[in-house]
Amino acid sequence: MAGRLKQWCRWLVVRPLIRGMLGMAVAHAERLPSAGPAILVANHNSHFDTLALLALFPRRMLAALRPVCARDYFQASRPRAWVARRFFGAIPLDRACRPGGGDPLAACSAALKAGEILILFPEGTRGAPGALGELKPGVAHLVQRHPEVPVVPVMLGGLERVLPKRACVPLPLLCTAEIGMPRRWNGDRRSFMAELRAAMLPRNLGSAALARY
């Protein structure tokens, strides 16, 4: 697919379709990076998370956005690999560290050097709906190498009901995205991850009411 055409197709899928369906309400859109390099991190419950994050950006920036996906999951099937790699320009990442496998973060590092914006889900998987799981320290390793790159936490809400794990037909439901304050490398991996985690706790829409029934 030609680059221009692909941008338009991506935009058509992401903006009118996804935003129209989810009626995304965005809090603090001004905190989103207006240019790369940057790292976007978000809580992860649904394949729609990536689409919702892409939908936060204007069309001209879609080319610079690189979702990071799990190599084992997205290369398990051909169509999945095509959509992730070709259509959304995703960077595959090895979730299990193989001894002697080289630097697992090399591709992410290169993308940051090229001024691109990474989309990362530090939980490493779509966890329990509406809850934030343990974070993997990969982001901290990455910003340690690129201390000038801001990390922007995003709290997504409602997507776990739109397309939960194992479901294949998405439901149109209202979703929210709250952009947190951009964070810089603070010199310590552990405290960096703890701060990031605090900024990523998701907001649950239906569950507050559900708890009462």
Binding site: R161, L174, G206
Partner: peptide, 17 residues
Amino acid sequence: REYLSVAPFRPEERNYL
């Protein structure tokens, strides 16, 4: 959509929506 987004359906009751 506004109502279903806040209505207390359980995750396994998705088909009702």
